[in-house]
Design a protein around this nucleic acid. Structure first.
Lengths: 183, 183
DNA sequence: ATCTTCATGTAATAAGTTACATGATTAA
DNA sequence: TTAATCATGTAACTTATTACATGAAGAT
């Protein structure tokens, strides 16, 4: 079995206490969506594979009449996760933004529409930020012992800072364009 | 035919003079890879579809004994591109970084290894930056009339600034961790 | 009562990458 | 003459998303 980022994401989240498929999806939603999005349809098959190959151990843990499976890391799982964290091979980061792609071609539009395009992007970023800030995972992490949850909080802060940086960057360009309009 | 970002990317690049499949791939490599990566295997089928549906017009334009097809925008293609640029619906930006994902779980490592992980990320970012800076498209764009190629240059600058921002951000965390080591 | 959340999964589809195959032209 | 670049495409595979199906528990 080839372990991919999604595998390690699951191992890592199980390790910090997201022990069911549903809980993993929830934690990923607010904790890692910014840096590595996942969908539920990836989680369940991947959990099954990780168990099959001995990285996770499964237990039935029903909540009343509601079925639930919980997972915990095996030694192999712990080793695999740490090996990955220490491994020197890292693919370059990928940033995919339809808004930025549109901006790339904005020369095709009159200046007013260029400004609109940039303004819409800022609006969208403000939405994303609000939605990230609402993350329970991060709020929870802050309350837990700092030694165990320092990096999730840091990465959350990076997300915020990155959005602020981009927001300011866009606003600078907007201002430049607006000044040219006034002339 | 449902037009996707890749469709508009192709229309946009044809519009600014990347008229063959190969040229589109080259231009995307240095111009838009940062914000919207593409592979050659996407370009050719998509070009064919765009022609089939009347957004592009194809001509045979062999270079000596070497076959080449060149494309130009039809009015429908121009309209579709501009419609997209003006459309208010924009999916949120997606940032996918295996390095950041690893960092999210770095609490599992001793401090020395945490610092290593961050340092490796910076090294990788420096590589990415060098490789982006080598882009012929951006260098070419700078020499062309600023009114036609302003936004590609701007987006290139955003890529650079974004990497610098992240580099500084990581270094700050590294310094914090190193200070704790010394104590 | 009814809506939301918790909970697990599958099927179908879409999107994207890697590898392969072929061959001409140009620069070192 | 050998390597790099120009040039077009396909096949196989991997990855990821959307939609569907089902149902219990808890909150309003």
């Amino acid at each position: 079995m080839k372990l991919r980022p999604i595998s390690f994401l699951i191992l890592g989240l199980v390790r910090v206490g997201a022990t069911s498929g549903y809980a993993i999806k929830k934690a990923a939603e607010t904790g890692t969506k910014m840096i590595w999005p996942v969908s539920l349809a990836q989680v369940y098959p991947e959990l099954a594979k990780l168990e099959e190959h001995g990285y996770l151990e499964r237990s039935d843990d029903p909540q009343g009449g509601r079925a639930r499976s919980t997972y915990e890391l095996t030694q192999a799982g712990e080793d695999a996760l740490k090996g990955w964290l220490r491994s020197p091979i890292e693919p370059p980061p990928q940033f995919r933004s339809e808004g930025m792609l549109r901006s790339f071609f904005a020369d095709a539009l009159p200046k007013e529409d260029q400004i609109d395009l940039l303004r819409r992007q800022r609006e969208r970023l403000v939405e994303v930020k609000a939605w990230l800030g609402a993350g329970e995972f991060r709020r929870a992490a802050k309350e837990i012992d700092a030694g165990l949850m320092r990096f999730p909080v840091l990465m959350g802060a990076y997300g915020d800072d990155f959005i602020d940086f981009t927001l300011n960057w866009i606003r600078r360009v907007e201002t430049e364009l607006e000044d040219e309009l006034d002339k």
